[in-house]
Design a protein around this nucleic acid. Structure first.
Lengths: 194, 194
DNA sequence: CTTGGTTCTGAACGCTTGTTCATATAACAT
DNA sequence: ATGTTATATGAACAAGCGTTCAGAACCAAG
């Protein structure tokens, strides 16, 4: 036997990415085999190599796509006052990350499974994202919108705090996304002394 | 050949735990083989099974030890006013986690590689730790020491923020541990509205 | 209806995996 | 010095790994 009925590149390609995303998030990159991904897609392992040169590229593509989408979706920089921009950032980060828990999980947990070259590329994208927040914090320092001492530390603190939402928040739970955004915005605003 | 000169249980046992800790933290549980651990110890793979029934138990033991030590090292609960207790907690968390980056990393990243039973045990220990902070936050709410609305959310937010220190702080860097503790304490205190 | 290119199968490749076990030797107790 | 026990080796096991490739079957265009 060989090619099966209904097989098509435009379908199988995305299917592979979705299956890999879910499996990597659930079990970890190293613990997932190409045969498992193929089985999830409904195809033999060899067929995956029509769509990715190897397993490493599959991981890298998922992470790069995620980081690129994240940067592209970021609200405009110079649209408003520092306090508004910070609020925008907080609400954006929570909402965007809530919508793609698997990609977020992978982007944080699988860095060590990237080749050094790929790692550097992803770290650069992450740095760009962190810089956006850091610039907001610096702008607010300059304008006296808040009192936080070290913008770099505050950047790390805020991002860690916000990303932590993904570990516990579920939309079916006690709180709505909006309530969570409100409470985190209050905590972030207080934390920077705004 | 067989048993080598100088071989001793009291030496090899800890060596295995140390090697496993470092390798798991660096490459991930699934990506590390028993042969790699053995090689790090200077022994053949079969010898490891004099010290652990299997690879899974090795991971679980490391995680359980870490969580147990964490709980045992926690400062006393009813020793002071809420504000002092919260400050104590913040400084303790940062210092304790800074001293054992590998164990912390593993305890957060390798949860999905535990069997369901082992996972439940570790999650219970983690829950106990989080409860200690939550109780402090509730006590402060009751006494009016601060204004934070939802103690559960604040617990998650503070722990995520504090644990994030490990991703960037190095003692050789620009800041001392004490300075970092000071700044994070200020941010946490502000965040809860204290 | 044929041709050509795309997408798949299924077998194979050399290697690595966690784990077991007979066997050998070092270390200790007597 | 002898006997016992603890601790190691090294080979073996079946299973699984990422990846390659010849050939088969599908799809679309002429």
């Amino acid at each position: 036997m060989a090619r099966t009925t209904g097989s098509h590149s435009g379908i199988t390609g995305p299917k592979i990415r979705t299956a890999a995303l879910e499996l990597f998030a659930k079990h970890g990159f190293a613990a997932v085999s190409m045969r498992q991904i193929a089985s999830e897609v409904g195809v033999q392992a060899g067929a995956l190599y029509n769509y990715t040169p190897d397993k490493q590229s599959l991981l890298f593509d998922l992470m790069q796509s995620h980081m690129t989408e994240l940067l592209a979706a970021l609200p405009d920089e110079d649209a408003a006052q520092p306090l508004e921009m910070l609020e925008q950032f907080v609400r954006f980060h929570i909402a965007f990350h809530h919508e793609r828990p698997e990609a977020v999980f992978i982007a944080y947990m699988e860095l060590r499974n990237l080749t050094p070259e790929n790692f550097a590329l992803i770290e650069d994208l992450r740095g760009q994202y962190e810089n956006r927040l850091q610039n907001i914090l610096i702008a607010g320092q300059a304008s006296g919108a808040w009192t936080v001492k070290d913008a770099k530390i505050a950047t790390f603190a805020v991002i860690a705090m916000l990303t932590g939402v993904n570990t516990w928040f579920r939309s079916e739970g006690r709180l709505s996304l909006n309530e969570v955004q409100d409470q985190y915005w209050q905590m972030v605003r207080n934390a920077v002394g705004g």
